[in-house]
Write a protein that binds this DNA or RNA. Structure first.
Length: 513
DNA sequence: GGACGGTGAAACTTCAGGTTGCCTC
DNA sequence: GAAGTTTCACCGTCC
């Protein structure tokens, strides 16, 4: 099919976007990095002359969706004012939601996005414009899987609105055009491979089968796997069996399962060997963390018994797990700085530092950087600071916090089972601090509903530091500091009923630890 | 002569995403 | 591999 697109600029993506808007339609533009999503959105928005009231409102909303807007928020807001948005994992979930909703209702015309939008989310557009079919990988730039290409094309055409939809792939050269035609337009999509073979998945699965008593013997376990898609695809049952045996050995080493009878131990051939999970194994399976992570936590707790601990200790421990990957990367120029910070915190490490010459050292340093970043967060550094200093965007920060929190909770649970009850309190505090990004001194104030790190800090600065202070505080001062509604609410939560007029306010103090 | 500023080319650097897990109101 | 960023040499200007 031949499209005639007016060449308003040198940039074919911009031209396509402008043309789409001109014919009154919408487009999704797929690119391969967050940065280029932002750049593309900016380039297009610069060419848009008009804005409207609705867009102004959405733009404000996006700008102010976190307490203190970051440069990313400002950039997003600027674009949206012109009806163009970018969308990637660096936006907060609130911002992403705003973009998605307003694309659906037609107010936003163009979204420039990373592959986020190709999967899962149902966001169709008249045109799906695919700018990049190659993406950076270990071996340089690599062509993306055909399946992914199909996913992106699948966004073209909105079932209830348009009779048709177009997927447009941009090729820079004719050689590229040929390659794209051959690989994507006429090529076959890849086979789907079972992910069960991936080690972390396999060991998680094996543990869960045992701890839920779904399988009771080695034989049960092998039988189970022989019926999976993995086995069907892989065919070589002998190899699978040996992998599973190795997994069992690991789980036993990690004290997550028990092989009940000693006599079975020596004889691998005996398939009736009963399998049972330990108490720890059962809990780990319920917590749904990687058994390897659970083992790391357990060992760190043992190590920690004769150590001084700080927030950094826990943050580094949870950072250096598969769950938290990808970690923040230590750039070439930061290397010395991070190394130095590590030296300063060395005595607080719960795990032992790998040798500088081991391959895992790089990832270890990354975990140090990641934990330093989380540490800054709980010291009340704002998102813009973290973006500038650590290159982490608000959305990514939130994602990391959520996973780290879950791992901290798991650590707390494991320490209960392993008889380290004194850890529990520390971790509970740390979790709250991480949730709010607040220093320890704000903890009492954070118990109030409607009070986050910002308001708590304001109150604290004005010598209102705990529930008692709130109770005794002058209401007019409170109103000045944090507004009328919140003031009345926290007065009530503090048990000071003397001002009470607002019967509808049922907020009560948050409870924890 | 030297400090400063602007310019452009060369040298570096970096690069997508995300499901459930738990509990506590 | 390519886009974006930093570095650096070079040149002109002003004091």
């Amino acid at each position: 099919m031949n499209l005639k697109i007016k060449q308003e600029s040198e940039n074919s993506v911009v031209n396509l976007a402008l043309d789409t808007i001109k014919i009154g339609k919408q487009a999704l533009i797929f690119v391969n990095t967050k940065k280029s999503a932002e750049k593309a959105a900016e380039d297009i928005s610069k060419r848009m002359k008009t804005t409207n009231e609705q867009l102004e409102i959405i733009s404000e909303e996006v700008l102010n969706s976190i307490q203190k807007p970051t440069s990313q928020c400002e950039r997003a807001a600027m674009c949206i004012k012109k009806g163009v948005a970018f969308h990637h994992a660096g936006l907060t979930s609130k911002q992403r939601e705003i973009v998605e909703d307003n694309f659906r209702n037609g107010i936003i015309k163009i979204i420039c996005c990373t592959p986020t939008l190709a999967f899962g989310l149902d966001l169709p557009a008249y045109r799906a414009i695919i700018k990049d079919l190659r993406r950076y990988s270990q071996r340089g730039l690599a062509w993306i899987p055909v399946l992914e290409y199909l996913q992106m094309c699948g966004r073209a055409g909105r079932p209830n609105y348009d009779m048709e939809g177009y997927a447009i792939v941009i090729a820079e050269t004719s050689a590229e055009k040929n390659k794209i035609e051959e690989k994507y337009l006429n090529g076959k999509s890849e086979e789907i491979y079972s992910k069960l073979a991936v080690e972390p998945v396999l060991r998680t699965y094996v543990l869960s089968l045992i701890s839920s008593s779904f399988v009771r013997t080695k034989k049960d376990l092998i039988d189970f796997f022989s019926k999976t898609f993995y086995a069907h695809q892989f065919k070589d049952m002998r190899k699978i069996t040996s992998t599973i045996y190795k997994t069992l050995d690991m789980l036993e080493d990690w004290e997550l399962i028990i092989r009940e009878n000693e006599e079975f131990k020596s004889a691998d051939a005996v398939e009736d060997e009963p399998l049972r999970s330990t108490l720890l194994g059962k809990r780990v399976s319920e917590l749904y963390i990687d058994p390897l992570t659970a083992d790391k936590i357990r060992k760190c707790l043992i190590n920690a018994s004769d150590k001084k601990l700080r927030e950094f200790s826990f943050l580094q421990m949870v950072s250096n797990t598969l769950e938290l990957r990808p970690l923040l990367r230590v750039g070439i120029k930061e290397h010395d700085k991070i190394q130095e910070a590590l030296m300063q915190n060395y005595e607080y490490l719960m795990e032992s530092e790998p040798s500088m010459y081991e391959p895992e050292y790089e990832e270890f340093l990354n975990s140090v950087k990641t934990s330093l970043m989380l540490n800054e967060w709980i010291e009340e550094k704002d998102e813009e600071f973290l973006l500038e200093e650590y290159g982490i965007r608000p959305g990514e920060l939130r994602a990391k916090i959520e996973i780290a929190d879950w791992l901290l909770y798991s650590t707390s649970e494991i320490s209960k089972l392993q008889h380290y009850p004194n850890m529990v309190k520390h971790i509970a505090k740390l979790r709250i601090r991480m949730k709010y990004g607040a220093k320890e001194e704000l903890l009492p104030l954070l118990k109030f509903q409607g009070i986050g790190r910002m308001r708590a800090r304001i109150l604290f600065r004005n010598k209102i530091k705990d529930i008692g202070d709130v109770k005794n505080a002058d209401l007019s001062l409170l109103k000045q500091l944090i507004g009328e509604k919140t003031s009345l609410s926290i007065k009530r939560q503090a048990g000071d009923e003397s001002f009470l007029k607002n019967e509808n306010d049922n907020a009560s103090l948050r409870e924890w630890g």
